[in-house]
């Protein structure tokens, strides 16, 4: 299984890489939405999971999610926003744009794994 982590912070990419890596994913990284689309465009197999920050230079996470929803090749990729944006209206916007789940920073490793379990990407109770 593959995942792509899209965040402009190297520290956050390292944390996310570690957590989803522990769940058995091979992890790709991109620093913004545009770079992620370019990277995904050149891959033979599309990752099952994308963890997407919101505020990034070039193309932000909301635009990335919308673009990924439009792209037939990326249709099966599960999109999880991982961001400090936590106003109710912002979450609703992200869900409307096509995000499947939403994790608010700060989050614990357990929380991220719980969300992946909710999405059926790791077995339930992987955490306990």
């Amino acid at each position: 299984m593959h995942a792509i982590v899209i965040d402009d912070s190297r520290a956050m990419r390292l944390i996310l890489r570690r957590i989803v890596g522990q769940c058995g994913f091979e992890v790709l990284e991109a620093g913004d939405g545009r770079a992620a689309l370019d990277l995904l465009g050149g891959l033979d197999t599309v990752p099952q999971l994308a963890l997407v920050d919101w505020n990034m230079p070039n193309m932000d996470g909301l635009e990335f999610v919308a673009a990924a929803r439009e792209d037939a090749r990326l249709r099966d990729m599960t999109l999880v926003m991982v961001t400090t944006e936590s106003e109710q209206s912002q979450i609703v916007r992200a869900l409307a744009a096509g995000a499947h789940e939403y994790v608010i920073k700060p989050f614990t490793a357990e929380a991220m794994i719980d969300k992946l379990a909710l999405l059926g990407l790791v077995p339930t109770g992987a955490n306990t």
Partner: peptide, 20 residues
């Protein structure tokens, strides 16, 4: 807290049953 609502609560239920 944010840390607590992240743990196991599907985001749709967060939006439906909670307010900031």
């Amino acid at each position: 807290s944010q840390v607590e609502v992240n743990r196991g609560l599907p985001v749709q239920l967060l939006v439906n049953h909670f307010t900031r």
